[in-house]
Simulated assay, not measured.
Amino acid sequence: MTAVAQGPVSERTAHGSPARTAPTGFRVLRAEWTKLTSVRSNAWLALGTVAVAAATAFGLGMFVGPEDGRSGSWVVTSGFVLAQVGFLVLGGLLGTSDYVTGTARSTFTTVPRRLPVLAAQVQVTLVAALTTALAALGASYLATAGARAGDAPALDLAVPGTSRALLGFVLASVAVSLLGVGLGALLRHPAATIVGGVVLILLGDQLLAANPGRVTDTIRAFLPSSGSRLVEDDAALAALDAATLGPRLGEWGGGAVVLAWVVVVLAAAAHRLARHDVR
């Protein structure tokens, strides 16, 4: 009897063919990027988000005059109120994609450590949201050019808080998308993710604002909707802080709040992913 030469277990399977190598971070990242770009509706969602931001800014800019006390930066960034829903959905769909399509088991069989998948989803969402936010800001600037040349205030970077508000539009949009991917990975259901996210970033704030008081204003201050403070100029922030009965968050406080939400939700999603069954 002759001996059959066999390679190391790490290099050969039972059938003698080379074993698959462990997935690298780059391969996982590329797979998640393929998932995002291969679904045509994601591109339409990004384009729709840009269009909503620009159309909202255009519509509101038509009714703004010098006597309203609004700044040129507010005219450009005013579309954030509705566009943030698009950013939320963009992140939420990516966070729930494996569970919706039924590929979760195969994905985490291929990547048994699991957490690299979530990390890749965060990176892909970051890039997609950043690109979409920059496009939305540029489209809003162009859409409001006529209004700013007429009765609406001009966009003057010398006005305190203007540059921060423009940067804040991009940062807040990215934060909302990352919150969406975290909620999606945690809840694993698109409807629950979108409804929960809309309540946190929009409806909860509006409901509490209708009943002002020390308790409700304090709760409002620590909702992720505080991230919208990033798109306000210094004058608007001063007016908000003067009117609140809760904590005064200042210029970057709202950004710190929404960042904390993103970190906590992603940590909770990572814990569930690492410690619980995938279905």
Rank of each mutant, 00 (worst) to 15 (best):
G79F: 15
G79V: 14
F80W: 11
F80I: 06
V81E: 12
V81A: 14
V81Y: 14
L82Q: 15
L82G: 05
L82S: 11
A83L: 12
A83K: 15
A83Q: 13
A83D: 15
Q84E: 11
Q84D: 10
Q84C: 09
Q84I: 04
Q84W: 06
V85Q: 11
V85M: 08
V85K: 07
V85S: 06
V85E: 08
G86K: 12
G86R: 10
F87K: 13
F87A: 12
F87E: 12
F87G: 10
F87D: 08
F87W: 13
F87L: 15
L88C: 07
L88H: 09
L88K: 05
L88N: 08
L88W: 03
L88M: 04
V89R: 13
V89T: 14
V89I: 15
V89W: 15
V89P: 14
L90P: 11
L90H: 12
L90T: 10
G91Q: 08
G91E: 06
G91R: 09
G91Y: 06
G92S: 14
G92N: 02
G92R: 03
G92K: 09
G92Y: 09
G92Q: 03
L93Q: 11
L93V: 08
L94S: 13
L94R: 12
L94Q: 12
G95M: 11
G95T: 05
G95C: 05
G95P: 04
G95H: 05
G95K: 01
G95L: 02
T96V: 03
T96S: 01
T96L: 08
T96C: 09
S97M: 13
S97R: 13
S97E: 12
D98N: 15
D98T: 13
D98K: 14
V100R: 12
V100G: 04
V100S: 09
T101L: 14
T101D: 15
G102D: 02
G102H: 04
G102E: 04
T103S: 10
T103Y: 04
T103Q: 07
A104F: 02
A104P: 06
A104K: 06
A104L: 01
R105F: 02
R105Q: 08
R105L: 11
R105D: 07
R105M: 03
S106T: 15
S106D: 09
T107H: 02
T107G: 01
T107C: 04
F108S: 10
F108G: 10
F108A: 07
F108C: 05
T109I: 02
T109R: 01
T109N: 04
T109Q: 03
T109H: 04
T109K: 02
T110G: 11
T110F: 05
T110L: 11
V111R: 07
V111T: 07
V111I: 12
V111P: 07
V111Q: 03
V111W: 09
P112L: 00
P112Y: 01
P112K: 02
P112I: 03
R113I: 00
R113F: 00
R113G: 00
R114K: 06
R114P: 05
R114E: 01
R114V: 00
L115F: 01
L115R: 07
L115E: 01
L115I: 08
P116T: 03
P116K: 04
P116I: 04
P116E: 10
V117A: 08
V117N: 05
V117R: 05
V117Q: 07
V117P: 03
V117C: 11
V117S: 12
L118M: 00
L118W: 00
L118V: 00
L118P: 00
L118A: 00
L118R: 00
